[in-house]
């Protein structure tokens, strides 16, 4: 299978490239850009989590940024309480322990995904798209109206900078490699997941949910589990984002951010896991560099998006695969 070889090559080259990026930046005197690269990797994790439900599960969720944002807010709020020594829920629940805050971020995001999935997965098609969007908007407004945590203006907080007693997030490069490590772990875990029995069921739901039910699968439960899991991973990405920025505002869970995540997944190649990483890199790179050429880059980018949809569905990853492999992954 030469296709598998190419696939492995793609993964290795992409990850190796990301691994040496800080070295190149340092060698060329561009250390200040390492933070930007880290931001890209954080969104890549969120994009991979979306691929789990969008690419493998066929669930067009237009509200994924909500889970990302909630994860970030959990970290921010816990830190803020610990810093100000203000009780949370009447108890001294605030904490700056990174393990505790990141775990809490995953749990709360997954919990929220579970609740939203509970209602929205009762529907399919256009309904599902609109409902996930509406719920995400509800979460967005919830944080906009939380004046205690800055509302529209967002929340700035001093975070703990030492992770697991070794990695200092003040150190751009060290934090970069931590995020890269989380990304690689996410990719590996998701790879196992999509090929497991559970992953096959989720893919079966994408291919033909009616048939799955007739075979004896309670598809709702499996889709809900996948939706919850994806929400949890997005929450983890959000937690990293909060640590990365030391600042958080509702704008990161605006519905257009959910749209951006979908664009990253499709641009990179959905249902491939590694594709969305490439998609996030490409999207955020364009978002950063295109404005240097024209202030109005969106007027170019919008139609490009339309053209990609109409003519280049495979995504970046698809270009690297021989045709027969594409059919297995392209969907």
């Amino acid at each position: 299978m030469s296709g598998l070889d190419k696939r492995t090559w793609f993964v290795l080259v992409l990850l190796a490239g990301l691994a040496v990026l800080p070295l190149i930046a340092t060698a060329t005197g561009n250390e200040f850009q390492i933070g930007q690269f880290r931001r890209i990797l954080i969104f890549a994790i969120a994009a991979v989590s979306l691929d789990l439900i969008l690419g493998y599960g066929g669930m067009v969720s237009l509200g994924h940024a909500a889970f990302f944002g909630v994860g970030a807010y959990v970290v921010a709020i816990l830190n803020w309480h610990a810093d100000r020594e203000v009780p949370l829920f009447g108890m001294m629940l605030g904490t700056q322990n990174v393990l505790a805050t990141w775990t809490a971020a995953v749990v709360v995001s997954a919990g929220l995904a579970f609740l939203i999935g509970l209602v929205s997965l009762r529907t399919t098609g256009i309904f599902f798209i609109m409902i996930t969007l509406a719920f995400a908007q509800m979460v967005y407004f919830f944080f906009v109206s939380l004046r205690a945590y800055g509302g529209d203006d967002g929340l700035r907080f001093p975070g703990d900078t030492v992770v697991l007693g070794v990695i200092d997030t003040e150190n751009d490069t060290a934090f970069y490699y931590l995020v890269l490590g989380v990304l690689c772990a996410t990719l590996y875990l998701c790879r196992r997941l999509v090929n497991s029995r559970f992953g096959m069921v989720v893919q079966g739901c994408r291919e033909n949910e009616r048939r799955m039910r007739a075979l004896g699968y309670p598809t709702y439960l499996y889709k809900l589990a996948a939706f919850t899991l994806a929400g949890g991973i997005a929450g983890l990405a959000g937690a990293l984002f909060a640590a990365h920025e030391s600042y958080i505002s509702p704008s990161i869970m605006h519905w257009t951010r959910s749209g951006d995540l979908i664009v990253m997944v499709v641009l990179g190649g959905m249902g491939t896991l590694i594709g969305p990483v490439a998609g996030a890199v490409a999207f955020l790179f364009l978002e950063k560099t295109l404005p240097d050429y024209t202030e109005h880059w969106m007027i170019v980018f919008g139609p490009i998006l339309l053209l990609v949809v109409l003519f280049a569905r495979r995504g970046i990853f698809g270009w690297f695969l021989p045709p027969e492999e594409r059919d297995r992954h392209g969907h």
Binding site: S196, R197, V201, G204
Partner: peptide, 26 residues
């Protein structure tokens, strides 16, 4: 109503799996 993106064997294995206990195996 088959799973068009899967191989013939995958299709049948999916049906076998349906009767092989729950699929919350990750």
């Amino acid at each position: 109503q088959v799973f068009k993106g899967f191989t013939a064997l995958d299709n049948v294995a999916m049906a076998v799996q349906a009767q092989a206990g729950h699929s919350f195996r990750f």
